[in-house]
Simulated scan of single mutants.
Amino acid sequence: MYFPVYRPRRFRRTENLRRMVRETSLRVDQLVYPLFVMPGKGVKNPVPSMPGVHQFSVDTLLKEVKSAAGLNIPAVLLFGLPSAKDEWGSEAHAESGAVQQATRAIKDRYPDLVVITDVCLCEYTSHGHCGLLKGKEVDNDATLEVLAKTALSHAQSGADLVAPSDMMDGRVGAIREALDESGLDQVGILAYSAKYCSGFYGPFRDAADSAPQFGDRRAYQMDMANSEEAMREVALDIEEGADMVMVKPALPYLDIIRRVKDEFDRPVAAYNVSGEYAMIKAAAANGWLDEQRVMMETLIAIRRAGADLILTYFAKDAAKVLRA
């Protein structure tokens, strides 16, 4: 039987050989840990649909942040829950808001840790939509002022990056202008540029109490069938001042991550979202797959597609594996 001179299996025989020719690497430096913070003290509420994920008050959040920092995770992403909701999402930009308090506390205790804050209104509005309403429609332009005000309040509290996830047209430019006019030109913007209207967000909406009270978000989040539109969205955000762009979710949109990485000269983040996390957790709990192996395979796939950063609820677990 004839064999070619080159046999690919020669470099698969041992772990050290495999390591030598491995094309894609994952480092703890590339992980961002999402966290949910809410008012109160001593709060650590488990999220039933996301095993291992909790809602924290600021005091308990600091313990979780200490754990993440001890694993050398470089950044956290903060989502806030309000003490009360209203039609305008007023607590999103309140000085006493949970995100603002948590940001100040983290930067005071761990000044070198990068704090990224999610900028959206869905957690704060009584109707659960990502912007102000005019009738039953989200009013894009009226929402921009509130988003800019929210981002500014986060930056003034010490955030290193603000991350608008609302998908309103023009929000990156509005936020950049507000930051620059306030002398906060060194605060960066991580834009959720290609955020798809996805069924993978279900568990997150439990964690953030952010499900819309009517309708859905198809009128402002992207259609799952579109890729050219994603390129236009990324281009617009970069023109408006985005320092980094994001694709969300990650696994169903690996092709989009690859295209963004190839076509644009900006760092690319990808969000390994709640539904992707919950699926692995559920399957592992049923003994259907090896959680650690599939977790790492998933994160490597996102890296291989081109992501420079991965936002993932697996950040601590992955960091432990990488350290070992």
Rank of each mutant, 00 (worst) to 15 (best):
F264A: 02
V234H: 02
M279R: 08
L62M: 11
R13N: 13
K44F: 04
A278S: 08
V115A: 06
V32E: 07
M167D: 05
L190M: 15
M222W: 02
V294W: 12
E15R: 14
F200Y: 15
K261G: 04
V5H: 11
L289R: 01
V146G: 07
V58K: 04
L35Q: 13
E91Q: 13
D262Q: 07
A148F: 11
G158A: 06
G42R: 13
V294T: 14
I106K: 05
V294C: 05
K320M: 09
P249V: 04
M1D: 12
Y192G: 11
E123C: 10
Y253K: 00
S25D: 13
T103P: 04
K85H: 08
L133D: 13
D86Y: 11
K44A: 07
M231T: 00
G287H: 03
Q292T: 11
P164R: 07
F314I: 09
D180G: 06
Y253H: 13
R19G: 09
G287E: 03
A282R: 00
G183P: 06
E145L: 12
Q221R: 03
F36V: 09
A178R: 09
P164E: 08
A270M: 00
N16V: 13
F3N: 12
R7L: 14
P74T: 10
F200G: 07
D223F: 03
V115T: 05
K44Q: 15
Y2D: 13
I257F: 00
G188A: 08
E240W: 03
R171E: 09
P74C: 11
E95W: 12
V47D: 06
F214M: 07
V234D: 01
E276Q: 04
A230Q: 01
F11S: 09
T143G: 08
S57W: 02
R304G: 01
D141H: 13
A94E: 12
H54Q: 09
